[in-house]
Write a protein that binds this DNA or RNA. Structure first.
Length: 1167
RNA sequence: AGAUCCGUAGCUCAGCCUGGUUAGAGCACUACACUGAUAAUGUAGGGGUCAGCAGUUCAAAUCUGCUCGGGUCUACCA
């Protein structure tokens, strides 16, 4: 079947509409139309379909780039989405933002390359495949080979690519989908390897341990994503223990021992006699620490306290051994262990079996004061001797994670089994002890606990909880203060249902902290929108940066290119495919491996890369470390990897060995994504660029907020409040959707998405634009206006034309500034305001007659040229935000006039504001005219005088000459707009006006300060004479609180308030009074106008053409005959009548009413 | 737990940086008008303890602090 091209369509439409096509546009090669296309009704989706067809036929996007081949480039990076999920409406906002900036910069004369990209690795893809196949991670390598599994992943990755492409197209997002970068591509991965090898060479890539959730039953680490599965956190009852760590006496702890000794000296006789003295048996202070995992106690190496937390040393008894003891804990937590009424009592009487423990505070101090105190190891065995820890353990440390919500305010710290513990332990170098193996049981050399499982991982019926046994031992040894069952929420492995351990696992890190200061400094050069994201969220993140843990134990992702010998003594980091080939061949030669087979059809994924064996310098075989890397490295490396590695440059030692056009495309001028990417893509881009190239990756970063539903809830499938972007665009059009998303709120604010809002935009903005265009097209087609006449200089145009063009140029200036500042919301709102307030509701409304009255001569041409220029300019201004409708109308205009040498508005240059066209004074007086008109209309309303009834005069008090001059210049406009015969100006000297005075607070406030109030009161008392005197002399003297004070005129504001005896209205300093007296003369004229209106209606109802001449007969009526006779010429001119006759009787005329007078009219078209 | 953004009319948002005396606009609602742009437009009306509390100041929606509510991010989640 034949499909029509755009030009053909245009031709066809023209035929259908009986429009003749005359010539071919000398620029575009398209047929030029004689008439502007008129629409039947506004249907944005249909127009968008047409535009899409046209764009694709003319390769409009490609041309928008290639036309700027010699232009400077504006660099944009596309953040890669993952195509394994459906796109949502929130994607539309960030993509609109990206698109409009790129389109804008293109129109501003830059070349903007836009390479699309796909994020293809990562856990969501693995999980999707597992769900689809009904398998779990455990089955990989058993029920399914890694090879098959990864093939499935590769297939699944692009599952919704078609949908994404479709949305991209339909929403009008111009990005190059034909040549995207794909993160699973070998060339892409190779570049990642290169970057990793560079980090390795710089010593910024290292292996260490990290504490991760680990499932001993499944023998695997868990991601926090897995930990966030529903049902993993369960309430369980565990044996918790508050245990006692015995302080060692040294300089730091001396004050504690001293406090105990002091108490001993003051002990009562009873205490001494019962052996309950604080000095009895063991007088050492003990640190109390709480744990819900007693199995971690053999691995304890530190005690962490809060620097600013207040601690107390308390004398009391051990509830199990009943021995007198002295313990340290947080003051806030005393209530958990001691009863208030037992304080300072009963020490002498305490005996075994007493429920209530006597207690007294011996001293009080801050956590900071016990930093560095040493204590004895709680459970010393052969396996956990201090030397084995590799550090200097058993000290009191400071940590900011300590709270006084639970426990004792002193945290038992086992670096192996907690992320916080590990971090603080590392800071103080207390070493690490891992007394539990990967099966979840204690190691050898722990006495009676050796080889016992710390939880029941083997479903042993006879399992005895080792935690309980540890507690029993501690009780016996006077080292337990409180043992109880404690119910808490604890994570479980979602596969085995067994409790998770936090366990130290080997991992590879990027040493981002090494260059933290540089990264912080570079960040300060980035233009963040909004500023707070960069300074606050991102800045803080950089300040508190930790090293980047790259390792992931997964299957589908970028492999870490590091090979190690079995003993770990030698390793190699491979930075390119040629290097890998070289090394692989070497191994084949020396070790007799069969790498060649794998290399022949190389895939840099598992399992293939894992099968490659390399050879070390000393001739030992090396295997790849099994880790994959964090997918965020994939996307953060896109500035380089999107182009790939250039082997020639690499050989030549180029510091940027990437394929062209890398050099022209680094760093980015602009990126934009959701604010959730702050710690994601924004960070990884920044980190890689900073670490490897000492550069920013992007100069401007716009972060957009979330799209919520109309009630402010997050959109989720579960709630069923997800907005389908396809349906939205289909129903309301991409333009209206885009315009709504951009103008409703600043992009970085969360937006409540409401379809009603799109409807409003459609009606209000696009409807007005459409009406204005239709209005223009209607008359321009009648008059044959095609901008053939020379451009009429501004000074030869009427005031109102100069005004709208001045406003237009002011608008261009504003919009350009906003767009340059990445404030599209402000730009869009400014365009809306111009379109509505200025162009449609003032210029067009006031100028309507100019388009349909009179001959085609100077004034009419002025009107056409002016309106045309306004329309054309607005279309260009709005084109980046709503690309379809603007282009459609632009092309319709250009098809007739051929003013632009471009096929599309998107190939045109953005308008440039002409300062010479801007006349601030003119804009000011037109604002006055609008305000005055509005006030008069308001008065008419109150006086019940309709606008068609002419009135005699308006009074306007003028405060100064400037104001009078300004209003006089727009007097005619006001008079015709409000249908009033004359304007009279009242000046101060005719004493007609009542004036009002009030302080100019801004000026006076600074001068007077506290005296403001009495002065304001004094001014309120001013008489008209006082005000007059002040105005005449320029100053006046007051007596305020018995002190003289001189006021200048510039320190007060004087406005006219009232005109006694007149009907007045105010707005700011403007006051207007209306004479509402209706004389017989005025009534007569009003009648004539009313009659015109009725006959116009008849013309319209009869379906006459605009230009048809008519003949009119009207029945005689005594009250009206006078009017009709007097205004006969006027009436005929208005209604295009050749003749208006008064006749006694019309048998079959139309019945009408003119100001309540019934009449019959007979209208016929002149043959 | 920390960080950050937001809270103004029934709804969507201005105003806040740079404090100034009646806190605005659009939508919606009601009434009236206008009508050769008409699925448009004008005028009028009701509608607000500017989230709350405290402080600074002659003066606070605006500056400061705290609290409450909502969102997001981070704690190896893509």
């Amino acid at each position: 079947m034949h499909t029509f091209g755009a030009a053909e369509l245009l031709l066809l439409q023209a035929f259908l509409k009986d429009i003749e096509i005359l010539e071919i546009n000398r620029f575009t090669g398209n047929y030029m139309a004689v008439n502007y296309r008129e629409f039947q009704k506004l249907n944005l989706p249909v127009i968008e379909q047409e535009m899409l067809a046209k764009w694709s036929e003319n390769q409009a996007f490609e041309k928008s780039v290639s036309l700027r081949n010699d232009a400077p480039s504006f660099v944009f990076y596309e953040g890669p989405p993952s195509a394994n999920g459906m796109p949502g409406i929130h994607h539309v906002i960030s993509r609109t933002l990206k698109d409009l900036v790129c389109r804008y910069k293109t129109m501003r004369g830059f070349q903007v390359n836009r390479k699309a990209g796909w994020d293809t690795h990562g856990l969501p893809i693995e999980l999707g495949v597992e769900k689809e196949l009904g398998i779990t991670k455990e089955d990989i390598g058993k029920k399914i080979t890694v090879e098959e599994y990864n093939r499935k992943c590769r297939e699944a990755v692009m599952r919704y690519k078609d949908k994404w492409d479709d949305l991209t197209k339909k929403m009008g997002y111009w990005v190059d989908l034909n040549d995207p970068y794909i993160t699973f591509d070998n060339n892409y991965i190779e570049t990642l390897w290169y970057l990793l090898s560079k980090l390795y060479e710089k010593g910024l890539l290292y292996e260490s341990v990290s504490i991760q959730p680990y499932s001993p039953a499944a023998g695997t680490g868990l991601s926090s994503h897995e930990l966030n599965q529903p049902g993993t956190y369960k309430m369980v009852k565990d044996t918790s223990a508050v245990v006692m760590f015995r302080a060692v006496k040294d300089e730091k702890s001396a004050f504690l021992f001293e406090a105990v000794a002091n108490a001993g000296r003051q002990a009562s006789r009873a205490e001494l006699e019962t052996g309950h003295s604080p000095l009895a048996i063991d007088h050492s202070p003990f640190f109390l620490a709480w744990t819900t995992t007693p199995w971690t106690l053999p691995s304890n190496l530190g005690l962490t306290v809060g620097e600013r937390i207040t601690y107390v040393l308390v004398q009391t008894f051990n509830p199990y051994t009943h021995l007198p003891i002295n313990v340290v804990l947080a003051k806030d937590l005393l209530g958990k262990y001691f009863k208030p009424e037992a304080e300072n009592t009963g020490f002498g009487e305490y005996k075994e079996g007493d429920k209530v423990l006597p207690w007294r505070i011996l001293t009080e101090f801050k956590g900071a004061e016990i930093e560095g105190c040493r204590y004895e190891q709680l459970l010393p065995f052969e396996a956990n001797s201090p030397e084995k820890s590799g550090g200097d353990p058993f000290r009191v440390l400071l940590g900011d994670f300590v709270t006084t919500e639970d426990g004792t305010g002193i945290v038992h710290t086992a670096p192996a089994f907690g992320a916080d513990d590990y971090r603080v332990g590392k800071k103080y170098n207390i070493g690490i002890l891992t007394m539990v193996d990967r099966q979840g049981k204690f190691v050898d050399g722990l006495g009676e606990f050796s080889n016992r499982y710390v939880k029941n991982y083997k479903d042993d019926k006879d399992y005895v909880d080792v935690n309980v046994d540890i507690c029993v031992k501690l009780k016996k040894e006077n080292r337990a203060f409180k043992i109880e069952k404690y119910e808490h929420n604890y994570p479980h492995c979602w596969r085995t249902d067994k409790p998770v351990l936090y366990y130290p696992l080997d991992a590879w890190f990027i040493k981002t902290t090494a260059l933290k200061d540089r990264l912080v400094a570079l960040n300060k050069t980035i233009n963040w929108k909004p500023r707070s994201t960069g300074e606050g969220r991102f800045g803080n993140w950089l300040e508190n940066m930790v090293d980047w843990n790259l390792s992931r134990s997964r299957f589908w992702g970028t492999a870490l290119p590091i090979w190690k010998t079995e003993d770990g003594s030698e390793e190699k980091c491979i930075g390119s495919v040629p290097r890998l080939k070289e090394e692989a061949a070497k191994a084949d030669k020396t070790l007799g491996t069969n790498n060649a087979k794998i290399m022949a059809d190389l895939d840099l994924h598992k399992p293939y890369v894992d099968d490659i064996i390399l050879v070390s310098e000393s001739g030992k075989p090396m295997k790849r470390v099994p880790d994959l890397i964090d997918v965020w490295f994939d996307s953060g490396a896109m500035p380089y990897a999107q182009w790939g590695l250039d082997h020639e440059k690499l050989k030549a030692g180029d510091p940027y060995p990437f394929k062209q056009p890398f050099n022209k495309n680094y760093p980015a001028d602009f990126i934009a994504e959701g604010v959730d990417q702050t710690r994601g893509w924004f960070y990884t881009l920044h980190a890689i660029a900073g670490l490897l190239f000492d550069s920013v990756a992007y100069k401007t970063c716009v972060s957009n907020g979330l799209v919520l539903d109309k009630n402010g809830n997050k959109m989720s499938k579960r709630l069923g409040n997800v907005v389908d972007p396809f349906k939205t665009i289909e129903q309301y059009g991409a333009d209206a959707t885009r315009w709504y998303l951009i103008t409703n709120a600043s992009p970085w604010e969360n937006m409540k998405f409401d379809l009603e809002g799109i409807k409003e935009v459609q009606r209000k903005f696009f409807g007005t634009l459409y009406n204005t265009y239709q209005f223009f097209a209607l008359y321009a087609n009648v008059d044959g206006f095609a901008f053939k006449e020379a451009y009429i200089p501004l000074e030869q145009r009427p005031e109102i034309d100069r005004w709208i063009l001045s406003s237009l140029n002011t608008l261009i200036k504003k919009v350009t500034e906003y767009m340059d500042d990445y404030e599209p919301t402000q730009a869009g709102r400014a365009i809306e305001e111009f379109m509505d307030e200025h162009l449609s509701n003032w210029y067009v409304r006031l100028c309507r007659r100019r388009f349909w009255k009179g001959e085609y001569e100077h004034d009419k041409v002025c009107a056409y040229q002016t309106l045309y220029e306004c329309l054309e300019t607005v279309l260009k201004l709005m084109a980046p935000i709503s690309p379809f409708f603007s282009d459609a109308l632009f092309q319709n205009l250009n098809a007739v006039t051929g003013r632009h040498n471009t096929e599309s508005v998107h190939h045109a240059d953005y308008p440039v504001s002409k300062p010479a066209a801007i006349d601030a004074s003119l804009e000011e007086r037109m604002q006055l005219a609008q305000d005055i008109s509005s006030l008069v209309l308001s008065l008419r309303k109150t006086a019940r005088q309709k606008v068609r009834q002419p009135l005699q005069k308006v009074l306007i008090p003028v405060l100064n000459k400037h104001m009078k001059d300004q209003i006089e210049l727009v007097e005619d406009l006001i008079k015709s707009e409000v249908n009033v015969k004359e304007i009279t100006y009242l000046t101060e000297d005719n004493g007609f006006i009542k004036k009002k005075i009030k302080p100019n607070y801004t000026v006076l406030g600074k001068k007077l300060g506290a005296k403001m109030k009495p002065v304001a009161a004094a001014l309120a008392e001013f008489s008209q004479d006082d005000i007059a005197k002040l105005e005449k002399d320029g100053s006046i003297s007051l007596n305020i609180e018995n002190e003289p004070l001189i006021l200048q005129t510039n320190e007060v504001e004087i406005t006219s308030e009232d005109i006694p005896g007149w009907m007045v209205a105010n707005k700011d300093a403007l006051t207007v009074a209306l004479d509402v007296t209706v004389t017989p003369e005025l009534v007569s004229e009003g009648n004539a106008r009313e009659l015109v209106n009725r006959i116009q209606k008849i013309r319209k109802d009869s379906g006459f053409e605009l230009t048809d001449r008519i003949l009119v007969k009207v029945t005689e009526h005594q009250e009206l005959s006078q009017s009709i006779a007097q205004f006969n010429n006027y009436i005929c001119a208005e209604i295009l009548a050749d003749k208006l006759e008064l006749v006694p009787e019309i048998p079959d005329g139309t019945e009408i009413e003119v100001n309540d007078i019934p009449l019959k009219v007979f209208v016929t078209k002149k043959a």
